[in-house]
Amino acid sequence: MNCESCKDLLLTEYIDNEITPVLKDEVDAHLQTCMECRLFHCRIEHEILNPFLGADSVTPPRDLWQNVKASLETSKLSEEDIPNSVSERDVSKVRYGQESNLPLPASSKEATLHENCEVSFPNRMFDILKYFSWNWTFAAGIVIMTLLTFSFRSHPPIGPKISNPVRVFELASMSAVSPDLARQSLPDDLENGIAAIDNDDLESVIIQNSSFETPMEEFFL
């Protein structure tokens, strides 16, 4: 063994006890005969190994576990807020069998096992709604309202014969019935139709029905 390979081993496997017995014998034999490598070995022990022998285990502060526990509980709590979390899905698979055609309950905790071994699930409608955040629900509400408003504007829902309130009063004036009677014969959703008509329409209604005793304004109240 030459000095270079001896020093390489002294820096690594020899001092770390990772050397094979055969190689260790070779290094020991070389150290017996080589003063330079013996000195090198001394330096390694003194300057590298010995300082680290004094490495006390530094202990973490006592309250560190409390901090970890707190963040653990926080993360656990937020995990429970999410429906169909992985763990619950897994639990359901185990409980109901992976091949089963049963629908997975939104939460396995909500499933009820009856005495006749039937499993019932709560109404899932609410679970579906839970997927929508309030923002999306609000946005969807706005869209539906807008669509309804426009559809009433173009097609007031009063039926085929009486297509708009104005015609109701034309009809009423032609057949000389009082507006009260006309109101009774109207479909229930006239109110919606009224809500949808413009002020212009209202004026035309008033003009056309001015001969009636009951003022038209009152009719619309």
Binding site: V58, P60, L64, W65, V68, K69, L72, E73
Partner: peptide, 17 residues
Amino acid sequence: IPSCEHLFRVYSPAVFS
């Protein structure tokens, strides 16, 4: 939680060190 704590007690000194 108790298992988590046990794991912490065993490994936190080395991790901290």
